[in-house]
């Protein structure tokens, strides 16, 4: 079975008019890290919730390890592992107790569960904290504990919903390493959602960019970036004139777009092309006010396919995560 997940026309409509996921098609192959990238509200979590059988699809179908998510939901739950967006570990219990609680959800006999729990604690490097209450854990430790809980039933595929949401950069990088380890050492298949561009870029073998419930493009990050046709040069001139045509004639320039008074230029070999653009403009009597050169990132890919930047959505998301943290603290 090389296709672990297969979705065909998968759709979720809430309250009969709010389409959260709109006829998406994708498949996840054995042993790959497949990422859903998109801003808040794009339908990532709804998709993952359908795949892990928490939500029933309104239309379309999907299979996980060959089991139909709507008709064989119980079978699906047995073979998947889930690491939710929230910290779901019980604060009043210790790390080990939490893992054993998860094992009880799968009906794993205590003797086997204890062996696995020790292995998993070692894997996520929490062995020395296993008898400490989760209350005392840091964000990164909680994340790792969630990871361990999601692996207790030896799943064939692990679903991660925003695995590094609300973590600082260092902890995030550390978490990525644990996720990579799962793939490399255990050959596990991973399905993850994220709104962090760097995360999708560095972790995922293939990325599906999702916007307003629709998949706009799927492919390996490198390929997606390459498909943009080179580097992005942004240039602004002092004069109030349209120089698009002029720039377009420069060698290696593939496309020129005027946006908010500056020019967004797609070009191969940006380091060489940028100076020739400046020279051409100067020869024609224009003065360059500003210039920037970027190698394409997934943000450029996102911009290319959706016509807007992901950054704004990201900011509101950070605020959302902070609010969630506050709620969790308020509970105590």
């Amino acid at each position: 079975m090389s296709e672990i997940v297969k979705a065909e026309g998968l759709t979720k409509v809430f309250n009969k008019h709010l389409t959260a996921v709109d006829h998406v098609n994708f498949s996840v192959s054995q042993g790959e890290i497949f990422g859903f990238l998109g801003p808040n509200g794009a339908g990532k979590t709804t998709t993952i919730n359908m795949l892990i059988t928490i939500l029933k699809p309104t239309e379309g179908k999907a299979t996980v390890l060959g089991f139909d998510i709507a008709k064989q939901d119980a079978a699906v739950r047995n073979v998947i592992g889930v690491v939710p967006q929230e910290y779901t570990a019980d604060e009043d219990l210790t790390g080990l107790e939490n893992i054993l609680l998860c094992s009880d959800m799968y009906g794993i006999p205590r003797r086997i569960a204890k062996e696995r729990a020790e292995d998993l604690l070692k894997l996520v490097e929490l062995t020395e904290f296993k008898h400490k209450k989760v209350q005392t854990f840091s964000g990164g430790m909680r994340r790792r504990l969630e990871l361990a809980c999601g692996l207790i039933n030896r799943p064939k595929i692990l679903f991660l919903d925003e695995p590094t949401l609300g973590l600082d950069v260092q902890t995030r990088t550390a978490t990525w390493n644990y996720i990579r380890k799962l793939k490399q050492e255990y050959g596990m298949t991973l399905f993850m959602t994220t709104h962090y561009l760097e995360e999708a870029d560095s972790l995922c073998d293939r990325v599906a960019i999702i916007d307003h419930g629709k998949i706009v493009v799927v492919g390996p990050p490198e390929e997606l970036k390459h498909s943009l046709g080179g580097d992005i040069i942004t240039i602004g001139i002092k004069e109030d004139a349209d120089v698009s045509e002029l720039i377009g004639k420069v060698e290696n320039v593939k496309e020129v777009k005027k946006e908010n008074g500056s020019y967004r230029i797609k070009a191969e070999n940006g380091e060489v092309t940028a100076p020739s653009i400046i020279e051409t403009l100067r020869k024609n009597g224009y003065n360059v006010a500003k210039l920037s050169l970027t190698e394409p990132t997934l943000n450029e890919v996102y911009l290319e396919y959706t016509g807007k930047s992901m950054r704004d959505a990201e900011e509101s998301r950070e605020a959302f995560a902070a609010q969630r943290m506050m709620m969790r603290r308020a509970r105590q």
Binding site: N49, I52, T53, I54, A74, R77, N78, I80, V82, P84, Q85, E86, Y87, T88, D90, C102, M105, Y106, G107, C149, N153, F159, M327, R328, R331
Partner: peptide
Amino acid sequence: VWDRRLGFLNKVLSTPV
């Protein structure tokens, strides 16, 4: 209500319980 808010309910719903 807490179980829902904190995601614990969803977590349990995704297990074979």
